[in-house]
Design a protein around this nucleic acid. Structure first.
Length: 529
DNA sequence: TTAGGGTTAG
């Protein structure tokens, strides 16, 4: 309890947002006083307690809010519709506490107000499956704009962007007005679906309805960025008359990274002060993508100067940057210093060793991850397994790759995707095990994943290495039937026929290639000067 | 009570 008072005294900025009743209460506290020693002075007044609950939630102290709520219960303070929104917000990470509060809402008859019901929906949205959210929404007596907005937001959070659009249509047909929050959520759904046309329509609504704001502009920058329209993103950014905040600068920096405008990111980095984790993550990613170790090291120095070296996501980006720029030693050093390693940290370092041809070390790291899984509860995911498989592939470790493939299915219940199959088929092919690769390839016919072009390309290479024309010919025809407008597919098929001296086939392919307007992409090398 | 910006493969 001692830290409660100290925290308040150390953060004067937050004290300004303190409700007046709570201010008077906290001003009575001595720096070392105990919170609940003071509670009798609140006279069991629910208004004062509710104000204090809200204050703790806004100050980012949900644990204090929950303690206070428990104290209110034991003191017999009557709960009303103002008590529940803040306490539900404090339950966002605990489903069990949230359900208890839900029960109390029913007991105190505070479920019918749209405000408390929306808070309840929001709580389930942050810690429960979507069905719980939908149940709350269905049972709401009055579904106003805010309730619908909360539902849309929840659907998007649960990865159901297409359903968010369906919900929006129901909202409109229920004659509920939409507002700027609604449009903002729809823009986020467009980002998830990469839906440029829908996004443009919403942009038009934003202009027509004059719901333009910094938040809306940021969502628009994210939209245009996600579909590769960086010029449109810049137009939104430059057209803003109001002062810009860090979020919109970060959104634009991210747009530049995703669209290969690396120098623009470095220019933004100079303009923005102070920098935060997100802006620096974009800068580090720009260094990775442009293989610019010198800028990467300078940005790392800025990170140290800002004292942000403990941020896990930023460190993951640093591991990736050092690895891509060839400095595996620094990548490892960053990894060892991460206090809270997450699945991306482990995946990044495994991939670093794997892509540098250090398959054994990559596998050792994966085993360490599995050992630490019990204490740190960090589980490998599909990307981790792809990194392990890729590490085995780069080092020709066939048996280890096969073990990993089955471990993924049997122990972790992760369905291998086409990319996992492609990696394993590629490895088997290069090891001359065409029959084994073929069995895997055929098993994909039966699975729902289907045969993607990357799987076909891997199998085609296996047939080229193993000089198996019959199988390769079948795969080549399937690959061309997929109709993926990818010049490298044509090149692979052409090389396959060339390897067997079937030059007529090669000629035909090259003609078809030019007719479709495809151009061969040349390989590039990078030299930092 | 509802809305915006970051990391991991090939």
């Amino acid at each position: 309890m001692k830290s409660f008072s100290i925290k308040l005294f150390l953060v004067p900025r937050r004290a300004s947002s303190l409700p007046s009743t709570a201010t008077s209460f906290t001003s009575q506290c001595r720096p070392t006083s105990h919170l609940f020693d003071e509670i009798p002075h609140l006279d069991h007044d629910p208004c004062r307690f509710n104000a204090l609950l809200s204050y703790h939630v806004r100050a980012g102290e949900p644990a204090f809010a929950l303690q206070l709520f428990q104290q209110m219960r034991s003191l017999g303070v009557p709960l009303d519709s103002y008590s529940f929104p803040p306490v539900l917000s404090a339950c966002s990470t605990s489903q069990a506490s949230g359900r208890q509060v839900h029960a109390l809402m029913l007991k105190f008859g505070c479920i019918s107000s749209p405000i408390t019901a929306t808070s309840l929906l929001d709580m389930y949205s942050s810690n429960s499956p979507i069905n719980d959210v939908l149940s709350v929404f269905d049972e709401m007596l009055e579904k106003d704009t805010v309730a619908w907005n909360a539902l849309l937001s929840s659907l998007i959070t649960h990865g159901l962007a297409a359903d968010a659009f369906a919900a929006f249509r129901s909202m409109v047909s229920s004659r509920v007005y939409f507002n700027g929050f609604t449009l903002c959520s729809l823009l986020k759904a467009c980002v998830a679906l990469r839906a440029l046309n829908k996004g443009r329509q919403i942009h038009a609504w934003v202009i027509v309805t004059a719901y333009d704001s910094l938040v809306m502009a940021t969502a628009l920058v994210a939209l245009y960025s996600s579909v590769g329209q960086v010029e449109a993103a810049m137009e939104v950014f430059n057209g803003l008359e109001s002062p810009k905040d860090l979020a919109i600068f970060n959104a634009l920096a991210n747009a530049c990274v995703k669209n290969g405008r690396f120098n623009d990111v470095f220019e933004l980095l100079v303009k923005v002060k102070p920098l935060d984790e997100r802006m620096l993550t974009s800068a580090i990613t720009a260094c990775s993508e442009s293989f610019n170790l010198a800028y990467g090291k300078q940005t790392h120095c800025i990170i140290l100067r800002y004292g942000l070296q403990l941020d896990t996501i930023l460190c993951n980006a640093l591991i990736n940057m050092y690895s891509k720029c060839g400095d595996l030693h620094s990548a490892h050093l960053v990894f060892t210093r991460i206090e809270k390693k997450n699945v991306a940290s482990w995946t990044s370092i495994i991939d670093s060793y794997g892509s540098h041809g250090r398959g054994n070390e990559a596998l050792t790291l994966f085993q360490r991850m599995e050992e630490e899984e019990v204490s740190c509860s960090v589980l490998p995911n599909a990307v981790t397994f792809l990194s392990v498989l890729s590490a085995c592939s780069h080092s020709g470790m066939v048996n280890e790759a096969k073990e990993c493939f089955f471990l993924m299915k049997d122990k972790y219940a992760i369905d291998p995707g086409p990319e996992h199959y492609a990696c394993l088929i590629d490895l088997l092919g290069r090891a001359g095990k065409v029959e084994e690769a073929w069995d895997l390839f055929c098993s994909l016919y039966e699975s729902r994943n289907g045969l993607t072009s990357s799987v076909c390309v891997a199998m085609l290479n296996a047939c080229t290495v193993g000089m198996d024309f019959a199988k390769g010919d079948e795969v080549a025809k399937h690959l061309l039937k997929l109709g993926t407008p990818n010049s490298s597919n044509y090149v692979q098929v052409s090389n396959f026929y060339g390897a067997f001296g079937r030059w007529l086939g090669v000629e035909e392919l090259r003609t078809g290639f030019s007719r479709r307007g495809l151009k061969k992409q040349f390989g590039t090398s990078h030299v930092a000067v």
